[in-house]
Amino acid sequence: MTLEYDLFWSFRSPYSYLVTPRLIELERDYDVHCNVRPVYPIAVRLDGFFKQVNPMWPPYLLKDTARIAEMLGLPYAWPFPDPIVMNFKTGDVPKEQPYIRRLTRLGVAAAEAGKGLSFIREMSGVIFGGVRNWNEGDHLKDAAARAGLDLAELDALIEKDPDHYEGVIAANEAAQKQAGHWGVPLMVFADEPFFGQDRVDHLVWRLEKHGLKRRGA
């Protein structure tokens, strides 16, 4: 029997980007399926989030994510433009968020098309992989195509019924909270949360306790 787990994931999270290749390998090598459940970043969900964080946290995050990317051999740079529109001096995050709302809805559409994991890998690889102006030209179109999807078709589906995609995102965020954590990446298996890109080994260990098998075994 194929085991399944939920992945709560954000297009603005560098740690989400960093964990995705390992989850791709996990599904490639083992009889397990990842249910991709995109959520909005906490900075969008929680008003004033960046006005409350410890000022030492952002510089550490930049150092830590660059270190992890180097260790994993992944290209990495902070996105330009940032997927979240915000004032970095004041911490203000406006309600109008053209980049992150489109990306998150696209993630839902890709998941519903059965291509969620490959889509977030390709998209995050463009956003965090050092491509400047990732939102322009054919960068996103080509990333979607590498995942086996047509970007224009996904955008058309979303434009036809945006409330559906917002509803799925809201349901994902509620399920994330119900699972016992607020952050991303968050893997949840059998109601047990595994938070962070450094918890994949713990997830695999738990999956093995439930009979995880290598493909072809």
Rank of each mutant, 00 (worst) to 15 (best):
L62H: 08
K63W: 07
A69F: 07
E70L: 14
G73C: 14
L74R: 12
P79S: 09
P81V: 12
P81N: 05
P83D: 03
I84H: 05
V85A: 09
F88G: 03
T90R: 09
G91N: 04
D92S: 11
V93G: 09
E96Q: 11
I100C: 10
R102Y: 00
R102F: 02
L103Y: 05
G107W: 01
G107Q: 11
A110I: 15
A111K: 02
A111P: 01
A113H: 04
A113N: 04
A113V: 10
E122M: 01
M123Q: 08
M123P: 01
I127P: 13
G129S: 11
V131D: 03
W134C: 00
N135A: 08
N135H: 13
G137I: 05
H139L: 06
K141V: 10
K141C: 05
D142F: 00
A144P: 04
A144H: 01
A144V: 06
A145T: 05
A147T: 03
D150K: 08
A152C: 01
K160C: 02
D161N: 15
D161G: 09
D163S: 10
H164G: 12
E166C: 10
A170F: 04
N172W: 00
E173H: 11
A175K: 12
Q176K: 15
Q176F: 02
A179Y: 01
G180T: 14
W182Y: 12
P185E: 05
P185K: 04
L186C: 12
L186T: 15
